[in-house]
């Protein structure tokens, strides 16, 4: 599936997203029941997960299950983002058999920001820079041994005025 909405207005886009949600959630449930190994082997872009609004729906769409908090997931993010456009966020974990790492920003229009596949032999740690619309929880999900683990941190975002 390719995105062709580059010419659409905001309203039309929202309507389309709504429609996509219904169809794709239905689709997304099928492969999950089929084979757990599919997640690691699946190189396809998880389009539908990126279109979900809230983090719960995005996680469900991406993994088909829920995550439990774990102190083995170490999420590093600033207390106050210097600018919401560029927030450095990184993760390390001591969990074994990690197959993917995802970052979600609760208050963004679409919660899922990035999802990384970690093949065997790749160190389960990643650093990236994300956009945050406003002060929000940042949630990191680690998929390890077929289970989901999470860590959450609040990052304050203040919109710039004058200065610097």
């Amino acid at each position: 599936m390719t995105i062709t909405d580059n010419g659409f207005t905001a309203t039309r886009r929202l309507v389309l997203q709504g429609a996509g949600l219904v169809i794709l959630v239905g689709l997304g449930n099928i492969p999950l029941g089929v084979a757990p190994a599919l997640a690691a082997a699946n190189d396809k872009y998880p389009e539908d997960a990126f279109k979900q609004k809230g983090e719960a729906d995005a996680i469900k769409s991406l993994y088909g299950k829920t995550a439990e908090p774990s102190d083995k997931v170490k999420l590093d993010a600033p207390e106050i983002a210097e600018n919401g456009a560029v927030v450095p966020i990184s993760l390390t974990t001591t969990l074994a058999d990690v197959t993917s790492i995802s970052f979600l920003v609760s208050e963004n229009p679409n919660a899922l920001a990035a999802s990384y596949q970690i093949p065997p032999g790749t160190v389960p740690a990643v650093a990236n820079r994300l956009k945050m619309a406003k002060t929000s929880n940042v949630i990191a999900i680690v998929e390890a041994g077929g289970k989901l683990y999470s860590a959450t941190r609040e990052v304050k975002v203040t919109v710039g005025g004058c200065g610097g």
Partner: peptide, 9 residues
């Protein structure tokens, strides 16, 4: 493999 949405800087 990185899968990215619009919230990547």
């Amino acid at each position: 493999v990185a899968n990215w949405g619009t919230a990547v800087s």
